[in-house]
Design a protein around this nucleic acid. Structure first.
Length: 1117
RNA sequence: GGGCGGUUAGCUCAGUUGGUUAGAGCGCUUGCUCGACACGCAAGAGGUCACUGGUUCAAAUCCAGUAUCGCCCACCA
């Protein structure tokens, strides 16, 4: 790669090649690094698979790459896992827009075709993202690249769901949700944005009340009115249910009181619409109000809206208000500002409505951990286990966690992970009628019979006869009865002459020790189960078996069941969704017939990874919130949950263990894919050897198999191989021409999950702390009992020069790729990192990037100068000996710099580190040392020593130019994997003295410039110094462009520290300089005369002040 | 309504635990082709550190308040 370096650095000529060299080197993959110790790991926040890279990504990539490269140079195993997110709603919306342009829609295509279309689209744009990420110089491990829809990640999603479901943390419930009518899907609370809008506040005559509302049409579904408890006007109505007429539409509302009602707002009465307002829904639950759904998922009014049915909300409002006006029910209309909730993806107004959805219950105790998800996630940050930078965002995090509601995770869009739940609806057409036995002896005694065989009383017989009169036995095809006498007796009376099948499974619950005890005693055990008897869950299980039996045997039949109260309860639980509460279990079945439709019974539900065996299972139509899968990102990308097993015989495993790459056969191509981690197991002993991670999949034809390759050597011939396969896979037709998948494996003793998780740093924007960071912490703590990362580094938003958010609609966006083309990636990265503080927004504009382009060019030219001035560009191993003051100074400055940059980077002060490097490179090395090197000569060693190490220090910031310049050294290594320089000593004395030298030069230059002496002229100058050698003074003279003379009687004299000088030009101090000095002297003298100061300030400060005063006075002379 | 952040040179921003005469880059002025760099070199101008009060020997920095801009959160119909 060595070549003459041109005058100006042209990044676009080199960047792609350099990146390719890096990528081919394999060092992006920590497995190929010789590093030891704790790995440094970053999970790349996955960009949307369909997005293009914007400046936000570019800045994130710059920070992440900076950290990764720094820690790689520091000798740690640095892993940066890249990937993309399927971005459910965002992607679906995007493809839907394309379809709309084509005059099609997703409904027209249907689910499968639509999904195929999205997959195509994603595949195309993923490539764009990948290439753009490369363009930014990102040193991420592409062999570990993941996509949220990868098989392994999807498995992680269903695993998480199943575990949470089994722990009762995920549940299906009918609640109020945020509904986006355009997306036709629910949204999580934080996916709703608010926009202030001008609205009208309508005051409506509403029975005895006047209520105010911005959405009159929803009043059609009001079922309550809330008033403040102390509001005297309305006290008399509390508890009553009133009929209200709204322009001919009748509603029934229950009046209740709640302190949340502001008696001063409007008339102090609030109409409550439980189905379409989150607050009202809570009211309804607290006060037992009816819930009437008025607005459908399409945003149109349902039949509960009466004559307004079918209208969308806005037109319904218009018409309804008109009707109310006609009925003289509008009291007044006011202008009003309120917050309209809109969808964060498509800005469509959100419709709160009730619906059955899946929720993550954040306030429920996790079984066995005595904590809720919320508490778990809060504690991880509070305890300091996770550090958030800047720390003020920890507060934001707590606040959000405190206010977190249950998280609605089901979405009705198609593009997403299907919810791993299957339902089975039966189609038996069986009608089931349940009869309870009539009064038994135990009933009469008011004791619990349970399994004890009591008979019917006389009264019981009478009761049974009465019921018998009300039914026609021929209506039933088959009669079942509990095998206990009281039930059998009842059955015989109800169905005289019919065949009665008695079944033990229809018995009453077994009261165990509580048999023959009073119902008071028995009630205590109903919820928890009876000692030495049964629980109601037991009863449910045996009844379920009974039901399963009859559903397969007696299709289309009408079946009567004569049984007990306990079985009735279980029927209610199975068919009508009753709960196992003590209250419910203590109720008793009424006598008489109860009908149940076997097909309408609560569906059977199965939650698991795969479709259960058997017919009739249908998967839940919904998909999961995209953030549900993102929440697993740090560990799902590392192989969690490892499910795959690979069988090996022992000899093969030994070979892999020795670290060689090897291949072996697999027969099913769908079994494994790149990036997955698998357990290696001995096929005979079933003993596991450890893990391997698949890094490459290669399709090789059987006939092309090279049997001498490692891992294949054990087969002497294709024929032997074929036989072997045939033995293990007898069903497979193996011919010599079969295409087989052959995988290449690298052995690793630990899984990636063990090695790299928890990750080290999560670098992301503060805008997704809730969406993502919080959910990652929550899910990781729950599923792995680990934190997902140690430190959260939050960067700010990128804004334009005016401080506005960059957006397509404003047209103020800057395309990072364009900037990279124009100014180079290194310059762009610097402009994003230097001058920005964590958590605060950054304004970016072209001039700024151009400024850093200039710097990169400066670095280029510094190197160019050094390479051209030295004999041979070779690497210098140890710090060269300093010969002159300048040498001592630059080495000290460099050592200082290397140390400070190291500390700054380790402590996330990237901007500070960059500024220090910039200052050293330009203002110290280039402006002074290089100039001096032209005078003092023979500085090859020091120049090369510093340049080499400076390139390393710069490398995390500007990887391209530094790597390129590094190639000029006589080396085959890559800068990327060099080690961070060790720092030498700092000689303070030389720092001080050199500073005097600089001051001297500047002083003389000043005098020349102020006196309009042309730079070319070399006036005579006399210098006399206690600290500078003759050679040093010669340097001063050259830099300041004067002629040194041995004496100079009449001339302007000056003093810098311990050096006196005279120069033959006279220039008085300017008036401003003089007055500034006088002011300073006056102030400082006053300070020194202040006893308070001299007594209290540290002596060093006082001494310094005195010194400075003397200096100032000297200047005035 | 609650919370957080900002306000320092014309512009964009640094300024660690209070302690040189408050810094940088860009822009501006003047002058420069001295062995790399005009994407450069040298010199220079430019600031009541938003305001008011307090603490202190000492405040851009700490405290209280005010103004103003911005962000986040919240169920006020």
């Amino acid at each position: 790669m060595k070549q003459e370096l041109e005058k100006a650095y042209e990044p676009q000529k080199y960047e792609d090649d350099i990146y390719a060299t890096w990528e081919e080197s394999g060092f992006f993959n920590p497995d190929n690094l010789k590093a030891k110790g704790k790995p440094f790991v970053i999970s790349m926040p996955p960009p949307n698979a369909t997005g293009i890279l914007h400046l936000g990504h570019a800045s994130a990539l710059a920070y992440e790459d900076l950290m990764i490269r720094y820690h790689r140079l520091k000798g740690r195993k640095a892993l940066w896992v890249p990937g993309t997110d399927h971005a459910a709603i965002a992607t679906q919306t995007k493809v839907e827009k394309i379809l709309a342009k084509e005059g099609s829609s997703r409904e027209e295509l249907g689910r499968e075709k639509f999904l195929a279309r999205v997959r195509d689209y994603v595949a195309g744009s993923q490539d764009t993202i990948r290439n753009q990420t490369r363009k930014m110089g990102s040193s991420c491990d592409w062999s570990r690249e993941r996509y949220t829809f990868d098989k392994g990640l999807s498995q992680a999603v269903s695993e998480a769901f199943v575990r949470m479901y089994n722990d009762g943390l995920i549940e299906r419930d009918y609640r109020i949700v945020n509904w986006c009518p355009r997306c036709a899907s629910t949204l999580a609370d934080d996916e709703v944005e608010y926009e202030e809008q001008d609205a009208k506040l309508y005051y409506i005559k509403y029975g005895p009340f006047t209520i105010a509302t911005t959405r009159p049409e929803t009043k059609l579904a009001d079922t309550g009115v809330a008033v403040h408890p102390s509001d005297k006007k309305y006290k008399k109505y509390i508890g009553q249910t009133l009929d209200i007429d709204l322009a001919g539409h009748n509603i029934k509302v229950k009046v209740f009181s709640d302190k949340a009602v502001d008696p001063k707002f409007g008339s102090g009465a609030v109409g409550v619409t439980p189905a379409h307002s989150a607050v009202d829904f809570e009211f309804a639950q607290k006060n037992g109000l009816e819930i009437i759904k008025l607005i459908g998922e399409d945003g149109k009014l349902l039949s509960s809206g009466g004559k307004y049915k079918g209208m969308d909300t806005l037109s319904a409002r218009k018409v309804f208000v008109k009707d109310l006006e006609a009925a003289d029910q509008i009291v007044k209309v006011e202008d009003y500002k309120n917050n309209l909730s809109i969808c964060y993806r498509c800005d469509t107004p959100i419709e709160p409505l009730t619906s059955e959805q899946w929720f993550v219950r954040v306030n429920k105790k996790i079984p066995g951990r005595n904590k809720t998800l919320k508490q778990l996630a809060t504690q991880t940050v509070k305890s300091g286990e996770i550090k958030i930078l800047p720390d003020r965002f920890a507060k934001t995090y707590y606040h959000w966690m405190d206010n977190l509601h249950d998280w609605c995770i089901s979405r009705q869009i198609w593009w997403g992970h299907r919810i791993p739940v299957w339902y089975k609806k039966s189609d038996t057409d069986i009608k089931l009628t349940l009869f309870r036995h009539t009064q038994s002896e135990a009933n009469a005694l008011k004791v619990g019979a349970g399994h004890k065989d009591y008979k019917l009383t006389e009264k019981g017989v009478e009761q049974a006869k009465k019921i018998a009169g009300e039914i026609n036995p021929d209506d039933f095809d088959i009669i079942f009865s509990s095998d206990l006498s009281r039930a059998k007796q009842t059955a015989e009376i109800l169905f005289p002459g019919k065949k009665i099948i008695s079944d033990k499974r229809l018995r009453e619950v077994d009261f165990g020790d509580m048999t023959d005890k009073s119902s008071l005693m028995i009630n205590k055990y109903r919820a928890k189960g009876f000692p030495n008897g049964e629980t109601y869950q037991d009863v449910r299980d045996r009844v379920q078996l009974f039901l399963d039996d009859i559903s397969s045997k007696y299709k289309n039949k009408k079946i009567a069941v004569v049984s007990h109260s306990g079985v009735w309860k279980v029927f209610e639980i199975i068919f009508n969704g009753a709960d196992f509460t003590e209250e419910f279990l203590s109720t008793h079945a009424a006598l008489g017939a109860k009908e149940y439709d076997l097909d309408k019974k609560s569906e059977e539900i199965y939650v698991g990874h795969d479709k259960p065996k058997g017919k009739g299972w249908i998967q839940d139509e919904d998909t999961l919130d995209t953030w549900f899968s993102s929440a697993l990102w740090t560990f799902s990308t590392l192989g969690w949950p490892i499910k795959n097993k690979i069988g090996f015989n022992k000899s093969l495993v030994e070979k892999v263990k020795n670290g060689e790459k090897t291949i072996t056969h697999r027969l099913s191509e769908k079994e494994l894919s790149v990036g997955e981690t698998c357990i290696v197991e001995n096929t005979q002993t079933k003993k596991s050897f450890g893990f391997i991670r698949i890094t490459e999949v290669k399709k090789i034809k059987m006939k092309d198999l090279d049997l001498s390759e490692p891992g294949q050597g054990e087969y002497k011939s294709i024929e032997e191989f074929r036989k072997r396969i045939a033995k293990y896979y007898p069903d497979m037709d193996v011919t010599i021409n079969s295409d087989l998948w052959v995988y290449r494996y690298i052995y690793s003793k630990k899984s990636d999950l063990d090695t790299f998780h928890p990750t080290t740093v999560m670098e992301t924007g503060y805008d997704i702390i809730f969406f993502w960071v919080a959910r990652m912490i929550l899910m990781t703590e729950y599923l792995l009992d680990q934190k997902p990362f140690e430190t959260v580094y939050l960067h700010g938003m990128i804004r334009d020069k005016a401080g506005k958010k960059m957006s397509k609609s404003l047209g103020n966006g800057i395309d990072p790729i364009e900037m990279s083309q124009k100014f180079g990636t290194d310059a762009l990265r610097l402009s994003l990192i230097i001058g920005s503080a964590p958590g605060s927004d950054l304004k970016l504009y072209e001039e700024k990037i151009a400024g850093y382009r200039n710097f990169v060019n400066k670095l280029w030219n510094i190197s160019r100068f050094i390479f051209s001035s030295v004999d041979k560009p070779k690497s210098i191993k140890t710090e060269p000996k300093a010969k002159t003051l300048a040498d001592k100074w630059i080495l000290s400055e460099f050592n200082n710099l290397a140390k400070e940059v190291d500390v700054d980077l380790a402590e996330f002060r990237f901007s500070a580190a960059g500024e220090k490097l910039y200052d050293f490179t330009w203002n110290k090395l280039a402006d002074w040392y290089l100039e001096i090197s032209k005078i003092e000569k023979n500085k090859d060693q020091i120049l090369l020593y510093i340049l080499e190490r400076l390139l390393i220090l710069w490398h995390p910031f500007t990887p391209f130019v530094t790597e390129l310049l590094w190639q000029q050294f006589d080396t085959k290594e890559m800068l990327m994997v060099k080690s961070w320089p060790k720092t030498g000593k700092v000689d303070k004395k030389s720092l001080e003295n050199f500073s005097d030298l600089q001051k001297l030069v500047i002083k003389i230059r000043n005098l020349k410039a102020e006196n309009k002496i042309p730079p070319k002229d070399l006036p005579n100058c006399y210098l006399e110094s206690k600290i500078f050698s003759k050679e040093d003074l010669a340097v001063v003279a050259q830099l300041s462009r004067v002629t040194l003379v041995d004496s100079l009687p009449k001339a302007k004299s000056f003093t810098i520290g311990k050096t006196k000088g005279k120069i033959n030009l006279v220039k008085e101090l300017s008036d401003k300089e003089r007055s500034d000095l006088e002011k300073y002297i006056k102030a400082t003298e006053a300070k020194l005369n202040n006893k308070n100061f001299t007594d209290n300030a540290p002596p060093q400060v006082v001494a310094d002040t005195k010194k400075r005063l003397t200096e100032a006075k000297n200047k005035l002379k």
